[in-house]
Amino acid sequence: MTSPAPSAATPDAVPGNWVARAPAFAQPYLRLMRADRPVGTWLLLIPCFWGLALAAAGGYAGFHLLWYAVLMSIGAYAMRGAGCAYNDIVDRDFDAKVERTAARPIPAGQISVKQAWAFLVFLSFIGLAVLLQFNRVAIFVGLGSLALVAAYPFMKRITWWPQAWLGLTFNWGALVGYAAAAGKLDAAAFALYAAGLFWTLFYDTIYAHQDTEDDALIGVKSTALRLGEKTKPALGFFFAMTLVFFALAGTLIHAHWIYYLALGPGAAHFVWQLKHLDIHDNHVCLTLFKSNRDAGLLLLLSPLCELGLSSF
Score class of each variant (00 low, 15 high):
55 A>L: 01
78 A>G: 03
63 F>E: 15
65 L>W: 03
93 D>E: 11
83 G>W: 07
80 R>F: 03
36 D>A: 06
132 L>A: 01
38 P>R: 11
42 W>Q: 04
80 R>V: 04
66 L>Y: 08
94 F>K: 03
53 A>Y: 09
40 G>S: 12
116 A>Q: 04
96 A>K: 03
81 G>L: 02
29 Y>H: 08
41 T>V: 15
97 K>R: 15
128 L>Y: 02
43 L>K: 13
124 S>I: 00
56 A>D: 11
81 G>K: 02
31 R>S: 01
104 R>D: 10
70 V>Y: 04
61 A>M: 05
50 W>R: 03
25 F>Q: 00
114 K>C: 03
54 L>G: 08
40 G>C: 04
79 M>L: 15
64 H>T: 13
40 G>H: 07
71 L>C: 10
96 A>G: 02
64 H>I: 08
66 L>A: 10
123 L>W: 02
27 Q>F: 07
30 L>Y: 09
50 W>C: 08
66 L>W: 15
86 Y>Q: 07
100 R>N: 14
120 L>F: 15
114 K>A: 14
59 G>C: 08
73 S>G: 15
87 N>T: 09
102 A>M: 08
128 L>F: 09
63 F>H: 07
114 K>Y: 12
37 R>Q: 08
27 Q>K: 11
38 P>L: 06
91 D>W: 04
80 R>Y: 07
90 V>F: 04
39 V>S: 12
26 A>P: 00
85 A>S: 15
121 V>M: 01
112 S>I: 05
56 A>Q: 12
77 Y>K: 07
52 L>E: 11
81 G>R: 02
101 T>G: 06
38 P>V: 11
116 A>S: 13
66 L>Q: 14
126 I>D: 02
63 F>M: 13
67 W>T: 14
38 P>Q: 13
128 L>P: 15
62 G>Y: 09
70 V>M: 12
83 G>H: 05
61 A>L: 12
47 P>Y: 06
124 S>E: 00
96 A>C: 01
129 A>K: 13
97 K>P: 02
87 N>K: 10
120 L>D: 05
79 M>N: 09
93 D>F: 06
31 R>L: 00
49 F>A: 09
42 W>S: 08
82 A>P: 02
120 L>R: 10
81 G>F: 00
127 G>N: 10
118 A>N: 14
123 L>Q: 03
34 R>K: 06
119 F>M: 04
57 A>C: 08
30 L>T: 08
111 I>F: 04
104 R>I: 00
98 V>T: 12
65 L>A: 06
40 G>Q: 14
102 A>P: 00
37 R>D: 05
93 D>T: 10
42 W>K: 00
127 G>S: 13
45 L>H: 12
122 F>I: 03
39 V>I: 13
75 G>S: 05
60 Y>S: 09
79 M>H: 08
69 A>S: 11
129 A>D: 06
88 D>I: 06
43 L>V: 07
54 L>E: 08
60 Y>Q: 04
68 Y>V: 02
88 D>G: 06
119 F>I: 02
110 Q>L: 15
119 F>T: 10
102 A>S: 11
51 G>I: 13
129 A>N: 13
110 Q>P: 05
73 S>F: 08
94 F>Q: 06
64 H>E: 12
36 D>G: 00
107 P>L: 04
66 L>E: 10
25 F>K: 00
121 V>E: 14
109 G>D: 04
53 A>G: 10
69 A>C: 00
123 L>I: 03
95 D>G: 07
87 N>I: 09
